[in-house]
Amino acid sequence: MTTHSSEPLAVGLVGAGRMGSFHAETLARRLPDARLAAVADPVPGVARRLADRLDCPIALTDIDELLADPGIGAVVVSTPARTHADLVVAAARAGKAVYCEKPMATTLPDADRAIDAARTAGVPLQVGFNRRYDAGFRAAHDGIAAGDIGTPQLLRSLTRDPGLADPAPIPPWTIFLETLIHDFDTLRYLNPGAAPVEVSAMADALVRPDFKDRGLLDTAVVTIRFDNGAIAVAEASFQAVYGYDVRGEVFGSGGMFTMGDVRRTHLTRYGPPGVTADCATYDQDLFRDAYVAELADFVDSVRTGRTPAVTGEDARAALAVALAAIRSVGTGAPARVDGAE
């Protein structure tokens, strides 16, 4: 799919929640090569409020109506994870290029359906792994690929969210499928050319033990073995009281890269209370530029016809690690990653 028009790419947003609203603002105000053409959300009034705020002409509760609009060339899917695969399939069959928030699917058969639908329709499919667009993580990847620190041997990636509210609407295994899925993709990205083969995982409800009977695990550590011999650790917590914390580290035979920071800026205050820093408490503060860059990349891939930098196959590979981690927690033993030799 290639669009040669000099006009901005008309993009429809599906899902007007927290992340969808940020993407809508990016399409409406931050990308000159794109325009927000329509917003759809099944909750009455939600799409209209967002569309009005951004001067978008079309607000819908019927997602199928947005997909049927011939004037829309691409869609951004930012709905609950369980709906992603079906929406990717529907959008691809409607001939729309698709940007889908992570995870693209929660089962491997659904991931395969989404990938096959986009391939059959000949439309780009990109998935929202934002760390690949962060300047520090991207520079580390490029340096590792160039051999700057030799062969990767030990890797680490972590995600710590600032707080845990009542998790009633949070489905089981969220910590693997929606949080650590970022770290699994990041570890693949930082170990280019290697594939994860085996996973050992531990997880528990340490922040809110009273929520464990609902199936919510809020703390997890996952060890991953790659086929090039590298060993990686991914960890997550749903309660970092100091702020939103995302970091990575790659130790190689010839050196080490570290990346990520909890600070909103590099400003450090020195005063009577001591030395303090301004920590980010929101992912859209820490990864604002990366979120914009990933949508800019998506729009460019649609307009030029090139393959997106983050594909459906990348999403499937990260999901395979997440599902192996879930199996490992369930059995208390290491689990092979689906597709590993």
Rank of each mutant, 00 (worst) to 15 (best):
E7N: 13
E7K: 13
E7D: 14
P8F: 02
A10F: 00
A10K: 06
G12S: 03
V14N: 01
G15D: 06
A16R: 11
M19N: 12
M19P: 02
M19V: 15
S21V: 04
S21G: 14
F22G: 01
H23M: 06
H23D: 11
A24C: 05
A24V: 05
A24N: 10
T26C: 11
L27C: 04
P32I: 05
P32S: 12
D33L: 07
A34D: 02
R35D: 01
L36Q: 12
L36W: 07
L36E: 10
L36R: 12
L36H: 09
L36C: 11
A40T: 11
A40Y: 02
A40L: 05
D41C: 13
P42S: 12
V43R: 14
P44D: 12
R48I: 10
R48S: 15
R48F: 09
R48Q: 15
R49C: 11
L50P: 08
A51H: 09
D52S: 15
R53Q: 14
D55C: 14
D55I: 00
P57Y: 04
I58P: 00
A59R: 14
A59P: 13
L60I: 05
T61E: 15
D62M: 11
D62V: 14
D62P: 09
I63H: 01
L66T: 02
L67N: 02
A68P: 03
A68M: 04
I72Q: 01
I72E: 00
G73E: 13
G73P: 06
V75T: 10
V75L: 03
V77S: 06
S78I: 03
S78C: 15
S78A: 15
S78E: 06
S78D: 08
T79G: 12
T79H: 10
T79Y: 04
P80T: 08
P80Y: 05
P80S: 10
A81E: 03
T83Q: 11
H84P: 06
H84V: 13
H84W: 09
A85C: 08
D86C: 07
D86A: 15
L87N: 10
L87T: 12
L87P: 03
L87R: 14
V88L: 01
A90G: 03
A92V: 07
R93D: 05
A94E: 01
G95I: 03
G95E: 00
K96C: 01
K96D: 02
A97V: 04
V98A: 01
Y99V: 05
Y99R: 08
K102Q: 01
P103M: 07
T107Q: 10
T107P: 06
L108N: 07
P109W: 03
D110I: 04
A111L: 13
A111K: 08
D112C: 05
A114R: 08
D116R: 15
A118P: 07
A118M: 08
A118N: 08
A118W: 08
A121Q: 09
P124Q: 05
L125S: 12
L125I: 11
L125N: 12
Q126V: 04
F129L: 09
N130H: 13
N130A: 15
R131T: 14
R132G: 15
Y133V: 10
D134H: 15
F137V: 11
A140F: 00
A140L: 03
H141W: 03
G143P: 03
I144F: 02
A145G: 07
A146N: 06
G147V: 04
G147C: 07
D148Y: 00
D148R: 15
